[in-house]
């Protein structure tokens, strides 16, 4: 056997081994999906029925989506909050990032350091004052308040600033000579150039906001305002012993992320690899 065949064989063996490991790694998801298709009596049978004997898909998902605790409402809440937060956060961060990188003003440097320094503050260290503030200005228990909490992202500003710095100053200088102000330069030159970076950040922000559990838990109280994450937990408490329904709810809460992830897979992975960013 020559060198090349040996390495092909070795690579194939490794692929098979890794495949086995990855299936083991994903078993909780497989179990979740298969349980969501079953009738309740079959949930804990052993050996595990990976492929359900009795299918109960439509009934289970119908109960989750349109039963006593209808998921479509919470879905709508989550979609609303996540989409608005993502858009707002991208706008605020892109504006600030442009300001900090492409506008020459004396205070800018210091302001940037202050903004960046706040990144060191763990969110849990300021929860209590935020809660008090929200109670006193009426932002508590409202979607607006929740949206505001994640719309001023230091991380997004820092990430996008890196990309704006890569935009050549010649473009901006020549636009200025042509009489364009910063507003027009931002809209027509700088922003289009960094659009891929904004897209990456937007996908990450979408995932983080959709999955956020702590903020809704603390800043929302009324049932009808719940996000999907809070609803999931409430649903589990109510349906304590109905594991097939709980799993159908869990599957439902993950599906939008899977879709977003499959569409934006490349930019998510690149974004994370690039800055090693984390929510």
């Amino acid at each position: 056997m020559n060198q090349k065949t040996i390495s092909t064989v070795r690579k194939s063996i490794f692929t098979v081994l890794m495949m086995g490991m990855s299936i083991l790694f994903l078993l909780p998801f497989v179990w979740m999906l298969s349980t969501s298709f079953k009738i309740e009596a079959d949930v804990f049978t052993y050996p595990i029925q990976w492929i359900p004997k009795t299918w109960h898909v439509i009934e289970n998902y119908k109960e989750v989506w349109n039963g006593q605790f209808p998921f479509y409402k919470y879905y709508w809440n989550s979609i609303k909050i996540t989409v608005i937060t993502t858009i707002l956060s991208c706008i605020v961060s892109a504006l600030a990032a442009y300001g900090f990188s492409k506008i020459q003003f004396a205070a800018g440097k210091y302001l940037f350091i202050i903004v960046l320094a706040t990144y060191m503050i763990p969110h849990q260290a300021i929860l209590v004052p935020q809660f008090i503030l929200y109670r006193s200005i009426g932002f508590f228990d409202s979607h607006l308040g929740l949206i505001m909490l994640s719309s001023f992202s230091v991380l997004g500003t820092f990430m996008l600033r890196q990309f704006f710095m890569g935009v050549h100053n010649e473009y901006i200088e020549s636009a200025k000579i042509d009489g364009a102000g910063h507003g027009r330069i931002f809209m027509q030159i700088a922003f289009p150039l960094v659009r891929p970076a904004v897209a990456t950040y937007a996908i990450l922000r979408f995932i983080w906001t959709w999955n956020d559990y702590q903020n809704p838990l603390i800043f929302l109280r009324t049932d009808s305002l719940y996000t999907i994450q809070l609803a999931m937990q409430k649903f589990t408490t109510i349906n304590g012993e109905f594991y097939s329904l709980i799993m159908a709810a869990a599957v439902s809460s993950i599906v939008p992320l899977l879709i977003i992830f499959v569409i934006g897979q490349k930019s998510v992975i690149e974004g994370i690899a690039l800055g090693g960013v984390k929510g």
Binding site: V92, S93, L95, A96, Y98, G99, F100, I103, Q104, F105, A106, A107, G108, L111, F112, I114, V115, T118, I121, A125, I126, V128, P129, Q130, I132, L133, M148, L149, S151, F152, V154, T157, G181, H182, G183, F186
Partner: peptide
Amino acid sequence: KETLAGFLFVGPMLIGVTVLTLLPILAT
């Protein structure tokens, strides 16, 4: 004019960070 533009661009972020992070940490 440049300084004004600078503040307009970074303003929203600055206000957000001040109200939602800086003041709260002092309050903590």
